[in-house]
């Protein structure tokens, strides 16, 4: 069964296919925040994330003349950002795993202490997400962090909506296990 693709970017892509650089710039303006945010989430280094995000749009400029409207453009953007970030990301997450929030010399008090605890908890959550198997991690990042719907996530991950739901459930269960262990250590 073929699905009807209604892409909100279709009109703009047609203009790009007729050679309009202005239309392309409009497309970049429309999507750059999402691409940069995802790249930043996957890559520790801000400069590298920016570089990857730009590369995604350079690739888009190259690909769009041949675009056949078989998928939504944003789906392609997320897939490409994910793929380009992958090699860089592994390195970054290894680094993140070792990374600890700054430790003060003397025992902090009041708000500062709260801040440190919160920062530590965020690092722990990210490390736990990083420790998930690839597909589970992808579903958590797209669904929970990027707030994509189940259908959008399924499109990006090229799987069924049921698979997205199942993967998310598995991921949450695994994460709660991982972070439970961490809580036990804290005690």
């Amino acid at each position: 069964m073929t699905r009807e693709i209604t892409d909100p970017d279709a009109q703009i892509i047609l203009e790009i296919q007729h050679g309009s650089r202005d239309a392309f710039n409009q497309l970049v303006r429309r999507h750059q925040a999402a691409v940069r945010r995802l790249a930043q989430r996957l890559i520790d280094d801000e400069e590298e994330a920016r570089d990857v995000a730009q590369e995604v749009f350079v690739l888009a400029w190259r690909e769009l003349p041949r675009w056949r409207f078989k998928a939504k453009f944003f789906t392609w953007l997320y897939q490409t950002t994910w793929n380009l970030s992958r090699g860089v990301r592994r390195k970054a997450y290894r680094h993140q795993y070792r990374e600890k929030p700054p430790q003060p010399d003397s025992a902090p008090s009041g708000n500062r202490r709260e801040e440190i605890i919160t920062a530590e908890r965020h690092v722990a959550v990210r490390a736990a997400v990083a420790a998930l198997p690839e597909r589970q991690r992808q579903v958590v990042i797209l669904r929970v962090y990027e707030k994509l719907s189940v259908a959008q996530t399924a499109d990006v991950m090229k799987c069924k909506e049921g698979t997205v739901k199942a993967l998310l459930f598995q991921a949450l269960k695994k994460l709660s296990g991982l972070l439970q262990t961490e809580n036990d250590y804290e005690r």
Partner: peptide
Amino acid sequence: SQIGTRLNADAGTQTDPGNEEAFL
């Protein structure tokens, strides 16, 4: 629910990079 809350809280910490003309 605990992990959901923590993930949501962490997701909220990243500031939106927003639109940037220099990027374009």
